[in-house]
Amino acid sequence: MINRKLSFSNVMLFFGLVFLYLPMFILVIYSFNASKLVTVWAGFSTKWYVELFRDDQLIDSVLTSLNIGVTAATAAVILGTMSAYLLNRFGHFRGRTLFSSMITAPLVMPDVIIGLAMLLMFVSMASTLGWPEDRGMLTIWIAHVTFCTAYTTVVISSRLREMDVSIEEAAMDLGASPVKTFFVVTLPTISPSLISAWLLSFTLSLDDLVIASFVSGPGSTTLPMVVFSSVRLGVSPKVNALATLIILCVSLAAFIAWWFARRSDRAQRDAYRMLGRDQ
C-alpha cells in the first residue's frame, strides 16, 4: 500500500486505521438520518442539529465546558512551562525526585482515583479552612489544571530539551538577566509547543467526564456529564448530531496543534542545516 509492498504490517496498518475511523464515520452519517429509529435510514435531514440548539441545558453545559477548558488550559500551560523549565534547566534541587514523580503520575493514574482524591480533599478543606465553600466551576477548574499540567509539562519539556542551550547562554553572557533571557530567547523558541500543549489541555478538559463528575457541584454540569446521562439511556440521533459537532471541533483543534508542532520541527531542521549540522 504505502511501500507499494503488500507486507503483513502494511495491511495491519491499513485495517488499524479503518478500525479507528469507521465507527466515527458511521456516527457522522447517521446524525443526518431523518428517522428517529437509529438503525433505519429514512433520508437526509438536519433536524437533529436544529433540535440541539433549542436545548438550553445543553447550550449551558457547552458554555460551562468551554469556560473551564480555556481557563484551565491557560493555567496548565503556565504551570507546565515552569515545571518543564525547572526539570530541564535547574539541575538538582531538593525534592526533585518527588516532583518528577508527581508530574508523571497523573498521566497514567486512573481517573476514578484522581476524582475521588480531589473531591475528598475539597470536602476536607471546606470543613477545616472554610474554602472552597461549595463545589462547582472552581473545583472542576483546579482539578483540570492539575491533571493537564502533567501533559503540558511532557509536551513543553520535550521541546525545551531539543532547544540549543548555547543560545540562552549567549544571551546571558551578553548581559541579559535570566528572566529577560527566558522571555526574549526561550519563550519564542518553545512557543509552538506551548500552542500544542494548550490545545491538548483544552481537549482533555473538554473531554473529562469522570473527574468532573466527582468534583462538580449541583449547579455546574459540563458537556460530558450531559452526554453521559443521555448516552446511558441508549443511542439517539440527537446525541449523534452532538457527537458529530464535537468530533468536528476537536479534529480541527488537533489538526492545528499537529500543524504547529510539525512546522516547528521543520524550522528546527532548517536551522540545523544552516549551521551545517545535518540532523
Binding site: 456516527l27 460530558p224 443511542v235 446525541v239
Partner: peptide
C-alpha cells in the same frame, strides 16, 4: 493520534450503535 484527541465518550458511544 487524531482519534485519541476526539471525545472518549463519543468514541465509546459510537460502538453502542
Amino acid at each position: 493520534l487524531l482519534p485519541s484527541w476526539t471525545s472518549f465518550l463519543i468514541r465509546i458511544y459510537a460502538w453502542m450503535g
